[in-house]
Amino acid sequence: MTTKAVSPWRNLWIRFCEDRIALGALIVVAIILVLALFAPLIAPQDPYDLSGLSLRDARRPPGFVGSGAYVHWLGTDAQGRDLWSAILYGLRVSIQIGIFAGAVGLIIGTTVGILAAYHRGIAETVLMRIIDLQLSFPPILLALVLVAVLGQGKAQLIAALVAAQYAYFARTAFGAASAERSKDYIEAAMATPLSNMRIVFRHILPNAMPALIVVATVQVAYAIALESTLSFLGLGLPVTEPSLGMLISNGVKYMMSGRYWISVYPGIALIVLIVAINLVGDHVRDILNPRLNR
């Protein structure tokens, strides 16, 4: 074969770039990732080094020049912390949690979904019944209960997020995998001495991947939103690791007296992140949807 076929991934990329809004959203996501990754280098202040904070700088409006002799572009919070720095570090925490929870959910959910699709029979019935039951339950409620039962902490929070989300991956993987499983070439492959593992990893998984990636992007955004909601309710991460949700929650009581910036700027960072990820995911879904194909 010498004719060079365009690989499906490259094709996906070309079609993705056709939509300016989606491309813009992808660039925004990339910028935020870079900011979060290099936060210690970019932030003018280490927001969690207490010796660097001065109460004289507390609750100052945006543009204030504090004792550090640099401009607090986004103002300072109740402890005199530079909000821009706090947001950069908060983004780090939120993104970490979102990606980690999304990845674990993807692995567990895909395993469950493919197992059910591959073995059919009783495994399919039992597993998918459980998944359907769980999907009818609001994830926020499930996460609340789990955080309540498991206690608070980073690992518990991730466990709660995964438990609330893996069912979406399982459903998607099941759908894609059982469509593939019923094709003749899989039946043929199963008649050969190829191992089950090989069939799953070489033939079934790659075909389920595109759909799973779309779900993964949306679920990462959802995990970030869910985590910030839990942190906002005081049921999320410990105080030592303030995510965006906790920064917002800290500012609420000052908002009533008109010091809006302590809550509003972390909130804007959160919204921009979530909306950008969703726009990217939405567009990839549109590209992969055969019904909308020209």
């Binding site: 939103a225 309710l233 009533m256 959160l270 919204i271 969703n278």
Partner: peptide
């Protein structure tokens, strides 16, 4: 409607309070 999907409920609530109450 896309905004309604993406923006967390608690954040919308805060903005509503900030705008209409404060």
């Amino acid at each position: 409607s896309i905004l309604g999907f993406s923006v967390p409920t608690f954040w919308v609530g805060l903005i509503l309070i900030l705008t209409f109450a404060v």
